[in-house]
Amino acid sequence: MKLNKYYLLTSCLAVGSFTHAQVPVKGMVTDEHKEALAYTTVRLLRSDSTFVQGTVTDSIGCYRLENVQKGSYLLSFSSIGYEAKIYPFTVGGEDTEKALPVVYLKENSVLLGEVEVKGSSFIRQKDRVLIIPDKQQV
């Protein structure tokens, strides 16, 4: 099968311009005391809150999102014990890599009430019932 030179040239240019329009976005997440927050959920959203891609921070609080196309985005950060935060940013056509400023998450302590767990000492199966005696019955 023969391909003409024009077809090869246009397909290479299309692939080249497509890959050039995608850049990595990186940054770091810390708490208010500038301690790195490991394993924080990072979600890349379009400006209408449509999910694009996501990742988690590494053990030193750094994250990296690959192949982000030109446009306006929101970054959503969430971690257990901290208030969620949304950071708007834009990727321009001239960017080769987008380094965002450090994001600080604020502590959010929620005190839970008493929890009581109850269970049954009977386990019903098809052909039998298992009875597990408690401490007093033993």
Rank of each mutant, 00 (worst) to 15 (best):
G71Y: 07
V102W: 00
I86W: 00
I80S: 15
K126Y: 03
Y87W: 03
Y73D: 02
R128F: 06
Q125K: 15
L65V: 08
Y63C: 13
K70I: 12
V91D: 03
V91S: 04
E83A: 11
Y87K: 07
V91L: 11
K98C: 10
G93M: 09
V68T: 06
F122Y: 13
K85M: 07
S72E: 05
I80T: 08
L111S: 12
R64K: 12
E116M: 00
K85F: 04
V110D: 11
G71L: 07
P101I: 06
G93K: 07
D127T: 03
V91P: 03
E114V: 11
K118Q: 10
R128V: 00
G61T: 03
S78N: 14
G71W: 06
S79T: 05
I123Q: 05
G92A: 10
K70R: 10
Y104L: 14
L111V: 14
K106N: 14
F89P: 13
Y87N: 03
Q125A: 13
V129W: 05
I80Y: 03
Q125P: 01
E94Q: 15
P88S: 13
L75K: 11
V110H: 15
S76T: 02
V110K: 15
L65N: 10
S78F: 07
A99C: 06
L74N: 04
E114F: 03
P101R: 08
L105K: 09
E116H: 06
E66S: 10
Q125L: 13
S109A: 12
A99V: 05
T96R: 15
G92V: 01
Y63A: 14
K126L: 05
K98N: 08
D127L: 05
F77M: 08
K126A: 09
G113P: 08
E97Q: 13
L65M: 13
L105P: 04
I80H: 13
E83L: 10
K126M: 04
I60M: 10
Y82G: 05
G119V: 07
S109I: 12
P101G: 12
G93V: 03
F77S: 03
G119M: 04
N108V: 07
V102Y: 00
Q69R: 15
Y63F: 15
E83W: 01
T90Q: 09
L100E: 08
